[in-house]
Amino acid sequence: MTFALLVSLLLGQGYAPQRQGLDPLEAEKEARVMRLGKQLRCAVCQGVSIADSPASMARAQLDKVRELVAENKSDEEIYAYFIERYGEWVLLQPTTGGLNSVLWLGPVALLGVGLIIIVMQSKRRAAASAAAGAPATTPAGPAPTSDDALLAQVRADLEQ
């Protein structure tokens, strides 16, 4: 029911009163609050951090960050508080561990697989050429094929 507020407004059923957040902490701690707040997704908004959202609920979440910072909790402990409730969805920048590593390493792995395929194909062609009696690498022109042998035979027959 994230859209309940919108529906309520459209139907003229009232409005959510805006509430003041807690007073800011001392400058250094408040900067940390805002840095952490920028990394946490607002639960009632669409992809906005709790530090950037004007929603009253986002202010409540930011107040929680403020409270935890005032208690000298570490960044990890503060993230863990929100992850415990909303999962990693709450992090605007997903972590690189666990299943997420598949997403981060996937493109690199695909590139590696592509390179392996190219190398194997090249080796296969070289082996095929060697089997046909031609050098594996020819400095100029394409590798001779069975068609070339046939042409040579035709020329020899014509000369006779």
């Binding site: 029911m1 994230t2 309940a4 639960a43 009632v44 609920m57 409540a60 107040d63 909303y86």
Partner: peptide
Amino acid sequence: DPKSTVAVDYGVSGVPE
């Protein structure tokens, strides 16, 4: 819940829940 602290503790993401 005047400052929505209980709602945040419960991971509320809309209303009603």
